[in-house]
Design a protein around this nucleic acid. Sequence first.
DNA 1: CTAACTAAACCTA
DNA 2: TAGGTTTAGTTAG
Length: 173
Amino acid sequence: MEKTVIETRAGFIGLGWTRAGLAFLNLPVPTLYEAEMEMNPYLEKRTKGKNSDKEDPGLCYTPEGLEGALKAYFEGKPVDLSFPVDWSFYTDFQRRVLQRVYSIPWGEVLSYGQVGMEVGSPRGARAVGGAVGSNRVVLVIPCHRVIAHNGIGGFGGGLERKRMLLGIEGISI
DNA sequence: CTAACTAAACCTA
DNA sequence: TAGGTTTAGTTAG
């Protein structure tokens, strides 16, 4: 697993990747030190799935263009952040949900119930909440664009930051 | 295997 | 709007 920190207008973002794609990407924090500390729990830790990146010569992902895209995002530009993701960290259900969320475009939102509907769990809204909560790649998998049918829902990084991200995209709830 | 959690939705009044 | 009920998947024991 490779890692680095990039600086955007909103702060320092720590991220890591494997040969398969992005493994984690954190929210911006004010200092380089904090960004480095927040990466520790993710390094070489694989709670689920197999070792997708272990000596797989067919894959050779590196995050080219990601820094520029993230900087542009925090300058308010409607950029596409669908960079390759290492999906091996998730259960089948989590992967199905997150892959659907992955395709939600900039500036649009879906409810937990709608996502459940589309991935074959019409009454699994609550389970969808649990699944998006397992997202390690914020922004690239835009889990902040999934909200409750009657409100904003929740967010692992704090509701303030979810509102902030949606605000950047012109959505206020 | 069961029980106890959820970043939800629904129904009733 | 408030409160209780239903719900699917994950995780801890």
